[in-house]
Design a protein around this nucleic acid. Structure first.
Length: 477
RNA sequence: GACCCCUUCGUCUAGUGGACUAGGACUCCAGAUUUUCAUUCUGGCAACAGGGGUUCGAUUCCCCUAGGGGUCGCCA
């Protein structure tokens, strides 16, 4: 076990929990639990323009329904709060001033327009764009004058001129990046908010984060972060850059090409344990050939060493399979509880709980998403209109013969066992002289209103003896 | 374009120099079981990107090429 593990999931509240975010959160959570560490939720709301109302609540509730709970964060609080970056502005300002004082950062008064021009220029030469540091050459007096005049400014980190940053990533191993590829990052925006780079580093240090799990898209900005740690004289955390989750065309999973919000999958009615299991296996796999893992098993088995380097394509078909598997094998009561709202929506009275559980236990065998439960359940509560050709079939002579015979054959004092019921059925087939589809189809139409469905003992068990006989009788003309 | 990362069946992956005739899962196909649908079972199709090394021996180590992805914002 690794000691003093403190990890964090730090989403920006832009609306919903992304599948990629879910996986980062899950790995963080599993890693923390497994090492008896702490899992922190921190809200990175430094971009005023992108704030979305209710996003935090949404994020928190998505995590909660997925079974990922945090030890410190919004609502809960904790020793290292506040956990909203927008409430930590003073802290950031203090550290930014320290950087300026030490000469690691400088004021920049260049406007967006100037910068755009410079970028366009660099674009023409097809070069990597780097800010030319013209504001770094300003004298103290010039800076003060501009500040006094109330000119808007940002603060930039002054990266070293020459240096190869080499760092160790727990997934990728040693990674090297030349500082020539790294720009003087803006760390304080003109609206007084810090950028991610500064805020994350400061918070990770102050919150004593030991391992930073994040998407691979952050790999190339890691030198900026490492440099910040050095400027402050702090020890950087362990880096864990996760492979990306991909669209079918291998590009980074996106809203345009896929459903990316966890809540969408929940609304669609996928089994949530299956979703967790499925997402866990996107980029991570234990040594054995097993595929089905409960949350506890994921916590137990997870290891960074077994996280893949290559991105993983999100394959809905496999999620669907897994969702089916989970509906069939999870605890009956939990499926029944999950299905309840569907029945309410459909206006089906499920006050007979024993029957409800019998219905669910059978219907669950057929579903991929929970909303499909109704079409496999409603016939046990009430029979709809028969389709025309089915009605005709039910009325024909052979069908009526079968029904009349079976209404008597199945009638008994005691509740029939599956074996007894099967025996009666088989004997009856011989006696009536009608078999196969001609025998079973009308029977099924009478019982559940459709030609396909569960076997006789299953229907008998669900409906109960009385209702079973009644339905057959009702179909007799 | 520059830099960084990545590369085993269509997809998720196992594999850390010989046990590989490259394993599992999903999908697909075929057969069996079942009165029907669904299930279940059995079998099948299908991959080490290419080229050089190193080695007695490379999927595994090294190099090159190719392909894919990521980054290059006062977004995170």
């Amino acid at each position: 076990m690794i000691t003093d593990v403190r990890v964090r999931f730090a989403p920006s509240p832009t609306g919903y929990l992304h599948l990629g975010g879910l996986r980062v959160a899950l790995y963080n959570y599993a890693f923390a639990k497994q090492n008896n560490g702490k899992f922190i939720l921190r809200i990175e709301d430094t971009d005023q323009a992108r704030l979305v109302e209710g996003a935090v609540e949404n994020l928190v509730s998505s995590l909660e329904v997925m079974g990922i709970t945090y030890d410190e964060g919004p609502e809960k609080g904790g020793e290292y709060g506040p956990y909203f970056q927008s409430q930590r502005l003073d802290i950031y300002r203090k550290y930014i001033d320290e950087l300026i004082e030490k000469g690691h950062a400088y004021y920049c008064f260049c406007t967006k327009e100037t910068l755009d021009e410079m970028r366009a220029e660099a674009q023409k030469e097809k070069n990597f764009f780097k800010y030319d540091r013209r504001c770094h050459r300003l004298t103290k007096e010039e800076i003060q004058a501009k500040l006094d005049a109330g000119e808007p400014y940002v603060v930039r980190l002054k990266m070293p001129d020459e240096r190869i940053f080499t760092f160790n990533d727990l997934v990728r191993g040693e990674v090297s990046i030349d500082v020539k590829q790294v720009d003087d990052q803006v760390i304080l925006k003109s609206d007084g908010f810090p950028t991610y780079h500064l805020a994350a580093v400061v918070d990770d240090h102050l919150m004593k984060i030991s391992h930073v799990f994040r998407g691979e898209e952050w790999l190339s900005s890691t030198p900026k972060h490492i440099f910040l740690y050095e400027c402050f004289g702090w020890t950087p955390p362990q880096w864990v850059h996760l492979p990306l989750i991909l669209n079918k065309d291998k590009s980074k999973l996106s809203k345009r090409k896929n459903d990316v919000a966890v809540e969408t999958y929940l609304e669609k009615g996928y089994n949530k344990e299956a979703l967790i299991n499925f997402i866990a296996l996107l980029g991570w796999h234990p040594a054995e050939d097993r595929e089905l893992f409960t949350m506890d098993e994921i916590i137990k088995e997870f290891s960074i060493e077994r996280v893949n380097k290559a991105g993983a394509v999100f394959d809905l078909t496999k999620l669907e399979w897994m969702s089916r598997m989970y509906f069939r094998s999870s605890n009956l009561q939990s499926v029944a509880d999950y299905a309840k709202t569907q029945f309410e929506k459909a206006g089906i009275d499920i006050s007979d709980n024993d029957k409800y559980l019998r219905v669910i236990d059978k219907a669950r065998e057929y579903i991929t998403t929970i909303d499909q439960i109704i079409e496999h359940s409603e016939m046990y509560y009430s029979l709809g209109e028969l389709e025309e050709k089915d009605a005709e079939m039910l009325d024909n002579e052979e069908s009526q013969t079968v029904l009349k015979f079976m209404a008597k054959a199945y009638d008994s004092e005691n509740v029939l066992s599956p074996d007894e019921l099967n025996d009666i059925t088989k004997e009856s087939i011989k006696e009536v002289g009608i078999k196969g589809k001609k025998f079973y189809f009308p029977l099924r139409l009478a019982l559940i209103g459709k030609g396909h469905g569960p076997d006789m003992p299953a229907i008998y068990h669900i409906l109960g003896k009385e209702e079973f006989i009644n339905r057959i009788k009702k179909a007799i003309k």
